[in-house]
Nucleic acid binder design. Structure first.
Lengths: 224, 224
DNA sequence: GCAAAAATGATAGTAATACTATTATTTTTG
DNA sequence: CAAAAATAATAGTATTACTATCATTTTTGC
């Protein structure tokens, strides 16, 4: 990811918004502002009223883009995984060996995101932090089946499928490729959260990236 | 777990309640009622007012036991992991072989809980469903460091430590025992959630228990 | 068996939240 | 440049997450 990449719009599932926030200045301000604000105060304290103050637009205008703050969170989550898949495709291009492909995928899913790619009006470092601490709230709801029906999680499912296929290339008889991949995807985020807030649940070492190393070992041993 | 077990009170961290709910009839009704209600409508829609209606006591009385619904969730979570540890100790008693001990621990952490043990006024089947879908909301908060400081997660930490030690008995040079155990603990619950709501993220098979099998294989290969 | 203390019930109230509605003003576009 | 679309400004509502007060019931220590 570097400056040579043209500004591409990642398409997010239309059911997650009332009006595409990419289609106007106000829409982009809503996205940029909500990422800033959620990162700062957390999703629980985040309200459209506070966002309105932050971006200097009335609360009612925000409701014309998003039905609710839940839907906005689903949008951000969806954008993030879309971005991940884009990065994955990019990073796997022209690599033949399935083992190398899997290694690259694991790195992408588990590494810390510490640089904003300037890819768009979206700050990926902040968004990554939000996905780590808040995205589970997007599906751990009584509405999950409804949300699933409208395609809110299709990007994650797609990503899990893509990486599962690489695993099956390496070992066609491995029984649990999807479980293994979804374990990494959610687990890696959780481990980052634990490393920061509940270190007794992890084995953090300042030196190298323990999380990437842990998952690399885990996965390659599992599918051998 | 069977009827021969005497009714024991599991002690929950005192910082999580204002008044011990085990100490009175109303307190127990609050716990039983909140488990029923959260299981039914979900934690997001759950309010102390609704709970008051359910147990026929005024909202204000509930606030004398719990400062907020967040604290109540922390209490339930803490009770659950306390119960798990109790079961673990029970299940490992008199077993020498660390491999067998680990196998038993994995089973306990990953199996489906489908029978209420009649161990107390708490319905463990419902509580297990609540912990699966809601417990992450107890720590994925801006308040997590504060909550951690008052000991809200000490039971989970204890459990992770106990099982990590078994792993180190089997392989003293394994680098990531805590990460491995916390990966199981949180991952197993998540996989159960996925199996029910987002099956494309798993490899469900009706026959045997895929989740237990998956983690068994994963862990023993990882530490070999 | 009874007074004091503690717990609970009944009721009310408040600031904030998660929206919806209406009308005025600005901006865009054919 | 008029019509349409988008946004701003303002107001309003039901619900939530509490806190406060006082009356009533239950528990307890003697």
């Amino acid at each position: 990811m570097n400056n040579s990449i043209p500004k591409i719009n990642l398409q997010v599932n239309q059911n997650l918004y009332l009006k595409n926030p990419e289609s106007s200045e106000l829409g982009k301000k809503i996205i940029t502002g909500s990422i800033d604000l959620i990162d700062e105060i957390g999703f629980d304290s985040f309200t459209f009223r506070k966002l309105g103050v932050q971006i200097q637009s009335p609360e009612a205008s925000i409701y014309r883009y998003f039905e609710s703050k839940q839907k906005l969170l689903l949008y951000l989550n969806s954008w993030y995984w879309n971005w991940m898949e884009y990065r994955l495709i990019f990073s796997l291009a022209n690599i033949e060996s399935p083992t190398k492909r899997l290694e690259k995928a694991i790195l992408l899913l588990t590494e810390e995101i510490s640089e904003d790619s300037d890819f768009s009006h979206i700050n990926e470092v902040k968004l990554n932090r939000i996905v780590i601490s808040e995205s589970q709230k997007a599906y751990l709801t009584k509405d999950v089946d409804q949300e699933n029906k409208i395609g809110a999680f299709s990007v994650q499912k797609q990503l899990v499928e893509t990486i599962s296929k690489i695993i099956l290339e390496i070992n066609p008889s491995y029984k649990y490729p999807h479980m293994l991949v979804s374990t990494i995807i959610e687990g890696a985020h959780l481990q980052r959260f634990f490393a920061e807030h509940l270190p007794k649940l992890t084995d953090v070492s300042d030196s190298c990236d323990a999380i990437t190393d842990f998952y690399n070992e885990l996965i390659f041993k599992a599918i051998k």
